[in-house]
């Protein structure tokens, strides 16, 4: 009999192997979709660290995603940096921004935290519009194919796109898994479950939260930077409030506080819209009804239900 911890590792390793193998079987359309899904699922993983494990509900994560997106995009379009450097700049932008916002927002909690993060993200969105000279505002700008080459590999190529997205997802998932299985992660869960008791046990709760915000913001920025580099478009819609709500939705659907939940939620939402739009023009209606049903019948999200009913050992 395998130990639960081993099962857990194998299960997540299996998911990664499956995603790797998938690229050889998927038809072209779904191949492209999966690349996109994995990038956005990494964003959701970043979000889940803060929301699902630490219990901090942010409504402003789009600013971190956009920091990566614009950090790397502008580094290339305005300063002509290479892809590698641009990626680092994107993540650094997210890291710094999350530290600043984290330091301020952690003075609040609960709904006030939601609003403070929402407001900072709105200010970020408006800032993108304000500097339209460089960002082209809502229209956004494109990164030329020739500028999107990493170590001689063109990121606009289908195969390398999938592979880059997969690598990003691997990094995010393994990091998340390692973190939540570590002592640090256990403290985070303790904070989520009972913040006062954790504090009384001598943990510096605010410090743990602060570190998690930075980590979460940086992963989100990494996903944003990768999105810009793989798909060649940087636009203000990614900084809008919708892109703060989406990760929350994906995480809740897939299962908050599960490592694989963000991916499941993202796949679910993507194909829900994609498939229903093939059947009816009223696909939003379908999406709406499904969301209501999920809220009623699967309160912990897909993976949360799986964990509470079948695989109790799942991280």
């Amino acid at each position: 009999m395998m130990s639960d911890s081993k099962k857990d590792c194998f299960a997540h390793g299996g998911v990664l192997l499956f995603l790797f193998a998938l690229q050889f079987f998927l038809p072209a359309y779904h191949h492209g979709n999966m690349a996109r899904i994995m990038v956005l699922a990494s964003y959701a993983i970043g979000y889940n660290l803060l929301f699902g494990y630490t219990g901090l509900l942010s409504l402003g994560h789009a600013i971190f995603f956009a920091a990566g997106l614009y950090g790397s995009g502008l580094a290339i379009s305005q300063f002509g940096f290479s892809v590698g450097v641009a990626l680092v700049i994107g993540v650094a932008a997210g890291c710094v921004l999350s530290a600043v916002i984290g330091a301020l927002a952690l003075r609040t909690e609960g709904v006030a935290f939601m609003i403070v993060t929402l407001m900072f993200a709105q200010a970020g969105y408006l800032t993108v519009l304000y500097f339209g000279e460089f960002t082209r505002g809502d229209e956004g700008f494109v990164l030329a194919h020739a500028d999107r080459v990493l170590w001689g590999v063109s990121l606009s190529d289908q195969t390398s796109k999938y592979f880059s997205a997969f690598s990003l997802f691997c990094v995010s998932l393994i990091m998340c898994l390692a973190l939540v299985r570590s002592r640090f992660g256990k403290v985070l869960i303790a904070i989520r479950e009972n913040e006062e008791r954790t504090q009384m046990l001598g943990y510096n709760v605010v410090w743990y939260k602060f570190c998690t915000i930075i980590l979460s913001g940086s992963i989100s920025a990494l996903a944003g930077a990768t999105y810009a580099l793989l798909f060649g478009y940087v636009g203000a819609s990614f900084a809008s409030v919708e892109y703060s709500i989406y990760p929350l939705l994906w995480v809740l659907l897939g299962g908050a506080g599960t490592v694989i939940g963000p991916l499941v939620g993202m796949i679910f939402m993507f194909y829900l819209i994609d498939l229903s739009s093939g059947v009816t023009t009223a696909y939003m209606l379908v999406a709406g009804v499904v969301l209501v049903f999920l809220a009623v019948f699967a309160p912990q999200g897909v993976m949360g239900e799986v964990r509470s009913r079948i695989w109790k050992w799942l991280s």
């Binding site: 082209r136 229209e139 956004g140 494109v142 798909f231 478009y233 636009g235 819609s237």
Partner: peptide, 14 residues
């Protein structure tokens, strides 16, 4: 809408 054109164009070129 321009932002949809610009968002789609890189993909179209590829």
């Amino acid at each position: 809408f321009s932002h949809v054109v610009i968002g789609s164009a890189p993909r179209v070129g590829e």
